[in-house]
Protein backbone atom coordinates (compact mmCIF):
# COMPACT_ATOMS: atom_id res chain seq x y z
CA UNK A 1 0.00 0.00 0.00
CA UNK A 2 1.31 3.42 -0.87
CA UNK A 3 1.83 6.06 1.80
CA UNK A 4 -0.18 8.67 -0.07
CA UNK A 5 -2.71 8.17 -2.83
CA UNK A 6 -4.13 11.18 -4.60
CA UNK A 7 -7.20 10.24 -6.63
CA UNK A 8 -8.85 12.39 -9.32
CA UNK A 9 -8.34 15.52 -7.28
CA UNK A 10 -10.34 18.55 -8.45
CA UNK A 11 -10.25 22.11 -7.23
CA UNK A 12 -11.99 24.99 -8.96
CA UNK A 13 -11.69 28.70 -8.34
CA UNK A 14 -14.80 29.96 -10.10
CA UNK A 15 -14.45 28.93 -13.71
CA UNK A 16 -10.74 28.21 -13.34
CA UNK A 17 -9.91 24.53 -12.98
CA UNK A 18 -6.87 24.82 -10.75
CA UNK A 19 -6.70 21.06 -10.39
CA UNK A 20 -8.36 18.76 -12.86
CA UNK A 21 -8.37 15.03 -12.08
CA UNK A 22 -4.87 14.87 -10.68
CA UNK A 23 -3.86 11.40 -9.48
CA UNK A 24 -0.59 9.98 -8.24
CA UNK A 25 0.85 7.64 -5.63
CA UNK A 26 3.71 8.07 -3.24
CA UNK A 27 5.70 5.33 -1.55
CA UNK A 28 7.19 5.68 1.89
CA UNK A 29 10.65 7.24 1.86
CA UNK A 30 10.37 8.63 -1.66
CA UNK A 31 11.41 12.09 -2.75
CA UNK A 32 9.10 13.26 -5.52
CA UNK A 33 9.41 16.56 -7.34
CA UNK A 34 6.52 18.48 -8.82
CA UNK A 35 7.38 20.84 -11.64
CA UNK A 36 5.35 22.96 -13.97
CA UNK A 37 4.88 26.54 -15.12
CA UNK A 38 3.45 29.25 -12.86
CA UNK A 39 -0.24 28.73 -12.32
CA UNK A 40 -0.03 25.02 -13.04
CA UNK A 41 -1.65 24.20 -9.70
CA UNK A 42 1.37 23.09 -7.70
CA UNK A 43 0.68 25.20 -4.62
CA UNK A 44 -3.06 24.52 -4.91
CA UNK A 45 -2.30 20.80 -4.89
CA UNK A 46 -0.32 21.23 -1.68
CA UNK A 47 -3.03 23.33 -0.06
CA UNK A 48 -5.65 20.71 -0.89
CA UNK A 49 -3.53 17.86 0.47
CA UNK A 50 -2.83 19.62 3.79
CA UNK A 51 -6.46 20.72 4.16
CA UNK A 52 -6.19 24.48 3.69
CA UNK A 53 -8.48 24.16 0.65
CA UNK A 54 -11.32 21.70 0.38
CA UNK A 55 -11.27 19.69 -2.83
CA UNK A 56 -14.23 19.88 -5.21
CA UNK A 57 -13.79 16.26 -6.13
CA UNK A 58 -11.54 13.29 -5.72
CA UNK A 59 -9.84 12.00 -2.63
CA UNK A 60 -6.58 12.11 -0.68
CA UNK A 61 -5.77 8.84 1.08
CA UNK A 62 -2.94 8.84 3.61
CA UNK A 63 -1.82 5.63 5.33
CA UNK A 64 -4.96 3.96 4.04
CA UNK A 65 -7.39 6.57 5.39
CA UNK A 66 -9.08 9.43 3.59
CA UNK A 67 -7.99 12.81 4.94
CA UNK A 68 -10.34 14.70 2.66
CA UNK A 69 -12.42 17.29 4.54
CA UNK A 70 -10.27 17.17 7.66
CA UNK A 71 -9.01 20.53 8.95
CA UNK A 72 -5.25 21.17 8.58
CA UNK A 73 -4.43 20.56 12.25
CA UNK A 74 -6.01 17.09 12.08
CA UNK A 75 -4.17 16.29 8.87
CA UNK A 76 -0.98 17.52 10.51
CA UNK A 77 -1.48 15.11 13.37
CA UNK A 78 -2.02 12.19 11.01
CA UNK A 79 1.38 13.06 9.55
CA UNK A 80 1.27 15.56 6.69
CA UNK A 81 2.41 19.15 6.83
CA UNK A 82 3.95 21.65 4.44
CA UNK A 83 6.41 24.49 4.29
CA UNK A 84 5.02 27.56 2.59
CA UNK A 85 6.39 29.31 -0.45
CA UNK A 86 5.87 32.68 1.22
CA UNK A 87 7.35 32.12 4.66
CA UNK A 88 4.85 32.69 7.47
CA UNK A 89 6.70 32.31 10.74
CA UNK A 90 5.17 33.44 14.03
CA UNK A 91 6.90 36.78 13.65
CA UNK A 92 7.17 38.23 17.11
CA UNK A 93 8.14 34.90 18.62
CA UNK A 94 11.71 33.64 18.71
CA UNK A 95 13.02 30.98 16.36
CA UNK A 96 13.03 28.49 19.20
CA UNK A 97 9.45 29.30 20.20
CA UNK A 98 8.39 28.74 16.60
CA UNK A 99 9.84 25.24 16.71
CA UNK A 100 8.46 24.61 20.19
CA UNK A 101 4.93 25.38 19.00
CA UNK A 102 5.20 22.78 16.24
CA UNK A 103 6.50 20.18 18.71
CA UNK A 104 3.91 20.94 21.40
CA UNK A 105 0.91 20.82 19.11
CA UNK A 106 2.02 18.58 16.25
CA UNK A 107 3.17 15.84 18.60
CA UNK A 108 1.03 16.81 21.57
CA UNK A 109 4.00 17.18 23.93
CA UNK A 110 4.40 19.31 27.03
CA UNK A 111 6.53 22.43 26.75
CA UNK A 112 9.25 20.80 28.81
CA UNK A 113 9.39 17.66 26.69
CA UNK A 114 9.62 19.80 23.56
CA UNK A 115 12.70 21.75 24.66
CA UNK A 116 15.39 19.15 23.95
CA UNK A 117 13.79 18.04 20.69
CA UNK A 118 13.66 21.66 19.54
CA UNK A 119 17.37 22.04 20.22
CA UNK A 120 18.07 18.88 18.25
CA UNK A 121 16.04 20.02 15.24
CA UNK A 122 17.62 23.49 15.23
CA UNK A 123 21.06 21.90 15.50
CA UNK A 124 20.31 19.63 12.55
CA UNK A 125 19.09 22.51 10.38
CA UNK A 126 21.93 24.76 11.44
CA UNK A 127 19.75 27.50 12.91
CA UNK A 128 20.65 26.95 16.57
CA UNK A 129 22.83 30.08 16.49
CA UNK A 130 19.75 32.29 15.98
CA UNK A 131 17.38 30.43 18.29
CA UNK A 132 16.77 33.36 20.62
CA UNK A 133 16.29 35.90 17.85
CA UNK A 134 12.85 36.94 16.73
CA UNK A 135 11.98 35.30 13.46
CA UNK A 136 11.72 38.77 11.87
CA UNK A 137 15.41 39.31 12.52
CA UNK A 138 16.89 36.31 10.74
CA UNK A 139 17.91 36.02 7.08
CA UNK A 140 15.66 34.60 4.38
CA UNK A 141 17.76 31.43 4.17
CA UNK A 142 17.30 30.83 7.88
CA UNK A 143 13.62 31.66 7.74
CA UNK A 144 13.22 29.00 5.07
CA UNK A 145 15.05 26.60 7.36
CA UNK A 146 12.73 27.68 10.14
CA UNK A 147 9.74 26.68 8.00
CA UNK A 148 11.35 23.30 7.60
CA UNK A 149 12.17 23.14 11.31
CA UNK A 150 8.51 23.70 12.11
CA UNK A 151 7.50 21.00 9.66
CA UNK A 152 9.96 18.58 11.28
CA UNK A 153 8.77 19.69 14.69
CA UNK A 154 5.26 18.47 14.01
CA UNK A 155 6.66 14.99 13.53
CA UNK A 156 5.00 14.66 10.12
CA UNK A 157 6.11 11.67 8.05
CA UNK A 158 5.25 13.42 4.80
CA UNK A 159 6.49 16.95 4.26
CA UNK A 160 5.42 19.02 1.29
CA UNK A 161 8.08 21.60 0.51
CA UNK A 162 6.80 24.53 -1.52
CA UNK A 163 9.81 26.28 -3.06
CA UNK A 164 11.78 25.96 0.13
CA UNK A 165 15.02 26.49 -1.82
CA UNK A 166 13.97 29.58 -3.78
CA UNK A 167 16.06 32.72 -3.44
CA UNK A 168 19.07 31.02 -1.89
CA UNK A 169 22.68 31.52 -2.96
CA UNK A 170 24.58 28.52 -4.45
CA UNK A 171 26.12 27.51 -1.16
CA UNK A 172 22.84 27.71 0.74
CA UNK A 173 21.24 25.74 -2.08
CA UNK A 174 23.83 22.98 -1.79
CA UNK A 175 23.25 22.88 1.98
CA UNK A 176 19.51 22.71 1.41
CA UNK A 177 19.89 19.76 -0.95
CA UNK A 178 22.12 18.02 1.56
CA UNK A 179 19.44 18.48 4.23
CA UNK A 180 16.84 16.95 1.93
CA UNK A 181 19.03 13.88 1.37
CA UNK A 182 19.56 13.62 5.11
CA UNK A 183 15.79 13.80 5.72
CA UNK A 184 15.32 10.83 3.41
CA UNK A 185 17.88 8.89 5.44
CA UNK A 186 15.84 9.70 8.52
CA UNK A 187 12.81 8.09 6.94
CA UNK A 188 10.89 11.16 5.80
CA UNK A 189 8.86 11.20 2.63
CA UNK A 190 9.02 14.43 0.67
CA UNK A 191 7.17 16.13 -2.15
CA UNK A 192 9.12 19.08 -3.47
CA UNK A 193 7.82 21.91 -5.59
CA UNK A 194 10.73 23.78 -7.07
CA UNK A 195 11.72 25.82 -10.11
CA UNK A 196 15.45 25.28 -9.68
CA UNK A 197 15.99 22.29 -11.98
CA UNK A 198 19.47 21.73 -10.57
CA UNK A 199 17.95 21.05 -7.16
CA UNK A 200 15.12 18.97 -8.57
CA UNK A 201 17.44 16.80 -10.64
CA UNK A 202 19.85 16.53 -7.73
CA UNK A 203 17.48 15.13 -5.10
CA UNK A 204 14.27 13.83 -6.66
CA UNK A 205 13.76 10.20 -7.54
CA UNK A 206 10.63 10.79 -9.52
CA UNK A 207 8.99 13.79 -11.12
CA UNK A 208 5.39 14.76 -11.69
CA UNK A 209 4.65 17.51 -14.20
CA UNK A 210 1.59 19.74 -13.89
CA UNK A 211 0.32 22.18 -16.47
CA UNK A 212 -2.98 24.08 -16.30
CA UNK A 213 -4.16 21.87 -13.46
CA UNK A 214 -3.51 18.59 -15.22
CA UNK A 215 -0.84 16.01 -14.85
CA UNK A 216 1.00 15.88 -18.16
CA UNK A 217 3.92 13.71 -17.22
CA UNK A 218 5.38 11.44 -14.59
CA UNK A 219 8.48 9.32 -14.33
CA UNK A 220 12.19 9.26 -13.66
CA UNK A 221 13.75 12.74 -13.81
CA UNK A 222 15.79 12.00 -16.94
CA UNK A 223 12.76 10.59 -18.73
CA UNK A 224 10.50 13.44 -17.78
CA UNK A 225 12.84 16.21 -18.80
CA UNK A 226 13.40 14.74 -22.22
CA UNK A 227 9.66 14.36 -22.82
CA UNK A 228 8.56 16.66 -25.64
CA UNK A 229 5.32 17.74 -23.93
CA UNK A 230 7.19 18.72 -20.80
CA UNK A 231 9.79 20.63 -22.76
CA UNK A 232 7.08 22.47 -24.62
CA UNK A 233 4.97 23.24 -21.54
CA UNK A 234 7.67 24.11 -19.07
CA UNK A 235 11.33 23.58 -19.74
CA UNK A 236 11.54 25.34 -23.08
CA UNK A 237 14.74 23.56 -24.06
CA UNK A 238 16.22 20.16 -23.73
CA UNK A 239 18.26 20.11 -20.52
CA UNK A 240 19.17 16.45 -20.40
CA UNK A 241 19.37 13.39 -22.60
CA UNK A 242 18.50 9.77 -22.00
Amino acid sequence: MSLLAVRDLKKNFGALKALNNVSFDLEEGEIVGIIGPNGAGKTTLFNVIVGIYRPDGGDVVFKGKSVRNLPPHRICRTGITKTSQVVHPFLTLTVKENVLIALMFGRNLTKKASESKAEEIMEFLNIADVKDMRSTQVSLAKRRRLELARALGTGADLILMDENLAGLNPRELEEGMEIIRELKKRGKTLIIVEHIMQAIMGVCERLIVLSYGEKIGEGLPVEVCSDDRVIQAYLGEKICSV
Partner: peptide, 10 residues
Protein backbone atom coordinates in the same frame (compact mmCIF):
# COMPACT_ATOMS: atom_id res chain seq x y z
CA UNK B 1 0.95 35.81 14.13
CA UNK B 2 -0.07 33.43 11.35
CA UNK B 3 -3.28 31.48 11.61
CA UNK B 4 -2.63 29.14 8.67
CA UNK B 5 0.83 28.30 9.95
CA UNK B 6 -0.73 27.60 13.34
CA UNK B 7 -3.08 25.06 11.74
CA UNK B 8 -0.19 23.52 9.83
CA UNK B 9 1.69 23.17 13.12
CA UNK B 10 -1.18 21.10 14.51
Amino acid sequence: EAENSAELAG
